[in-house]
Computed example of a mutant assay.
Amino acid sequence: MTAVVQTYQKIKDLRDKDKHEKQKEYQKTVETFEKRAGELYERLREKETAVEQFNDSLSRGTLQAAAFVQHRQYIEHLEAIVDDLQPSVQQARMKMEHAQTVLTDAYIEVKKYEKLIEMKEEEEVQWMKHEENARMDELSMNQYLNFLNR
């Protein structure tokens, strides 16, 4: 391996290390998003259940005024929680998408260096073949000239 290829290999190794760090960061953002989205989902499900119970009680006509007010306040409380969670879920989604873009760029960067190394190694092989052919031609010419000089 020539010095050029070794240099590219070292750069690729650094980019690969950077890529792994970006993967960890991305995984953290995914976990944060999933946690916040899970919280939002649970609150929405809780609200849906509360609304169904409220509507069932209304349809049966067994709801007293105090319970009506209490149920309505509980649903409004859940709506407020949902309204508070939605921006944080959206922000977590945006961070996750940004981290994904950064990770994709890191993957591309590593691939570029892998391809560059591959090309340089192929150039080396071609150069070595060319040099070997040139030496073989020179050796053949010397043998031929030695044969003629006898």
Rank of each mutant, 00 (worst) to 15 (best):
Y41F: 09
L145G: 00
I11E: 11
E52K: 06
G61W: 06
H71T: 14
Q9P: 04
D105V: 04
V89G: 01
Q53E: 15
K95S: 05
E48A: 07
L148E: 06
A37Q: 12
K28R: 08
E124T: 12
D13Q: 09
E114L: 14
F147H: 14
K22F: 00
Q53G: 04
I11Q: 05
H98Q: 07
N55A: 12
M128D: 05
Q143S: 10
M94P: 02
Y113D: 04
E39N: 15
W127G: 05
T32R: 02
E79T: 03
G38P: 11
D18F: 01
R45N: 08
R15V: 02
E131D: 07
V89S: 01
N146E: 02
Y26P: 02
Q70G: 11
Y26W: 05
R15M: 10
F33P: 00
T29A: 09
R72D: 09
I108G: 10
E52R: 07
Q90A: 07
Y74M: 12
M128F: 14
D18R: 03
K12H: 01
E97Q: 07
E48Y: 04
K111W: 07
L40T: 05
D13I: 02
V4P: 15
K19A: 08
E122W: 13
Q100G: 14
Q86L: 00
V82W: 00
K115R: 10
V51R: 11
K22E: 06
P87V: 01
E114I: 04
K111H: 11
N146Y: 14
D83I: 02
V125D: 10
E118D: 01
V30S: 08
T49V: 02
Q70V: 10
I11D: 02
I81P: 00
F147P: 00
N142A: 13
T101A: 10
M1R: 09
H98G: 03
V102K: 08
